[in-house]
Design a binder for these strands. Structure first.
Lengths: 157, 157
DNA sequence: GCAACGAAGTTTAATAATGCAACCAACTGG
DNA sequence: CCAGTTGGTTGCATTATTAAACTTCGTTGC
């Protein structure tokens, strides 16, 4: 099948999908952000074949989304927890959730809502803001070529 | 192989992935949101096999993400444009983009930045806010069971 | 300390999804 | 009406996914 890799693509959306855009990775990340840590927990929750889970966990670790930590309950097994890079995926999960909440044809089948821990009230919708605070829709944005990186003034001496 | 469908899942993240979570759909949606409309444009931009593009466009239309419109340049061909449901995916694309901008190991390979059309300045990061305006991180949120829907008071007479 | 059990993987074989390339039909331009 | 383009289909090879059996430990129970 030779799934064409997007790793070298210059589009940041494609680059993100190349890292965790396959069928299971985002669900594993979702589970991890819900606090699941053990191989068996993921397997029971997702119902995917164990070999697939093995390879997914491995590549997510390789790519710095997850890391393995020695134990936690004292047993000699390992657990999988999100790295900062992995925690950074949280807004993507929120965006996916909110899209479903707004557009799903059967919203009654959605089991949970996201609330803020303090007040217990539903969170607001993600908003894209300009630097002066206006709310932006897709039509209010454009893409510009990325400006050249500031080069370090002098590498040595 | 029977790729396990997530359509009946109660998790809104899984439900979204079931709609456009495959390898190409989000990239097609990205292209559509950049203004590409023609079969040939998508094919040239994405470099995917034409049969795959055919099936993807068809399912995206079936699912209400895209719709076909008769022409635009007068020719008798059809074009594919986003529905409101499709435009609603925009925040997800932004979230993916911003994740790459923040965490990619080779940010120098990113070609474009998103700016607001008016001022030409980079947009701010998507923020998740509570109803009283606090910025929430993943740890500041919880999931609650969805409250029962308000039932229509009386269906007939 | 030894047997049974379970958790975490690996291996294997069958099957479904994907990719590639060639083919086809309709439309366009002259 | 003929050549080229657009949009799409069909077949075949390749790869991913799955389920189930098997391995390899660690963890009890005794």
């Amino acid at each position: 099948m030779k799934r064409t890799s997007l790793a070298g693509d210059s589009c940041p959306v494609a680059r993100a999908l190349d890292v965790f855009g396959d069928w299971w990775s985002l669900l594993i990340i979702r589970d991890a952000s819900l606090g699941r840590r053990r191989f068996g927990e993921f397997q029971a929750s997702l119902g995917l074949a164990k070999n697939i889970l093995t390879t997914r966990l491995r590549t997510l670790v390789e790519r710095g989304i997850l890391k393995t930590v020695p134990a936690s309950d004292g047993s000699a097994y390992q657990e999988y927890v999100l790295t900062p890079k992995g925690h950074g995926i949280f807004p993507i999960l929120v965006a996916l959730r909110q899209w479903t909440e707004e557009f799903d044809d059967h919203p009654d089948e959605i089991a949970t809502i996201m609330v803020d821990r303090d007040k217990g009230k539903p969170v607001k919708k993600l908003a894209l803001l300009s630097q002066d605070g206006r709310v932006l829709g897709a039509a209010d944005t454009t893409l510009k070529p990325r400006p050249a990186v500031k080069r370090a003034r002098r590498v040595s001496a």
